[in-house]
């Protein structure tokens, strides 16, 4: 084989996989979003060819009240969880950096355990913690002095309090579960970044009389900026399309419709009878476009930082 052809030959298997399993489906998704793809079109025996229905799917999406609730749920969840994860993760990263060797190792192993739990188990564990009858959260809330509990929450008896019946409390549990599982990654990344900052900089700052917050703002934050921008985008990608945890915490296909986010809404339209895959695809297109717009920044950052050229 001519040496010029070698790299192409090596790339072929991978390219075929990416083209067949990612690019072609992406194209199909866009095509289907302009078509009527219902039960008649997808039944195994003599299916009817899909018909073009122009923008009908998109107008249905935009006119549905589920569009606004699910878009709101998607965006608010991603912003709240992303922000909380970054703040908690950064604080833990800063803490880890100042701990002694043994203590730091213990905490890193501990947060690693939370990080390692598969999404399915994350959902199940937090469902159990927030269980109405035997959950430990209700038990702990009952421990609060009555006056404090009534002052803050307007109630003092938490026995049997159901958390997973309405969207707001479902999302509260979801935020906890996702925050718990994703702050370790931020913490460990921030720690890795902190370790790479030369200690002379901090000594110089101390000599110049700088204090904690000032040092963070003037030295730590600017130097860690590239780390933060990558972390922010990764959190957005992960939190935007959260499916497994929401699906399980909210109770599967029977969950309240007001608790849908975009990816769940798309799934339900496409796979719950009667299946409407055209509408499902249109929702998926909306989700993908929003995500790609946001992550464009990340791609540019990496293309600049890495030796892609």
């Amino acid at each position: 084989m001519s040496p010029k052809l070698v790299p192409y030959a090596l790339l072929i298997p991978g390219l075929i996989v990416i083209a067949a399993l990612l690019l072609y489906p992406l194209f199909q998704m866009v095509v289907m979003s302009f078509q009527k793809v219902g039960l008649k079109q997808i039944r195994p025996k003599n299916p009817v060819p899909a018909e073009w229905n122009d923008f009908e799917n998109y107008t249905t999406v935009l006119q549905s009240d589920l569009f606004w609730t699910s878009l709101r749920n998607t965006v608010v969840f991603a912003v709240v969880t992303g922000a909380l994860t970054l703040v908690v993760g950064t604080l833990v990263g800063l803490l880890l950096n100042r701990l002694g060797r043994a203590m730091s190792t213990v905490v890193v192993v501990g947060i690693m355990a939370a990080w390692a739990v598969p999404p399915t188990s994350q959902a199940i564990i937090w469902k159990w913690l927030f269980d109405a009858d035997s959950g430990i959260i209700n038990w702990a809330l009952n421990l609060l002095p009555d006056w404090l509990s009534s002052l803050v929450f307007g109630r003092s008896d938490w026995s049997g309090q159901p958390w997973l019946n309405e969207p707001l409390t479902i999302y509260l549990v979801l935020v906890m579960a996702v925050l718990w599982a994703s702050f370790p990654f931020v913490a460990v990344s921030v720690l890795a970044g902190l370790k790479s900052i030369p200690s002379e900089l901090y000594e110089a700052a101390r000599v110049d009389g700088s204090t904690g917050i000032g040092t963070f703002r003037k030295i730590t934050f600017p130097l860690l900026k590239p780390v933060f921008s990558v972390l922010i985008v990764l959190q957005i990608i992960w939190d935007f399309k959260v499916f497994t945890q929401l699906f399980l915490i909210a109770g599967g296909t029977n969950m309240p419709r007001e608790a849908f986010n975009l990816s769940l809404w798309s799934y339900i339209e496409a796979f719950s009878p009667p299946p409407d895959m055209g509408l499902g695809s249109a929702i998926a297109v909306v989700l993908t476009v929003v995500l790609l717009l946001i992550t464009f920044v990340y791609v540019r950052q990496i293309v600049k930082a890495e030796d892609v050229r």
């Binding site: 990816s263 799934y267 895959m277 989700l287 293309v303």
Partner: peptide, 24 residues
């Protein structure tokens, strides 16, 4: 181009590809 393609396809949510992949 291949490296940029690799990055971009990682950004596409797998949940969005559910319908076409199911049919395929």
């Amino acid at each position: 181009s291949f490296l940029v393609l690799l990055l971009i396809v990682q950004m596409v949510p797998a949940e969005a590809l559910l319908i076409p992949l199911f049919l395929m």
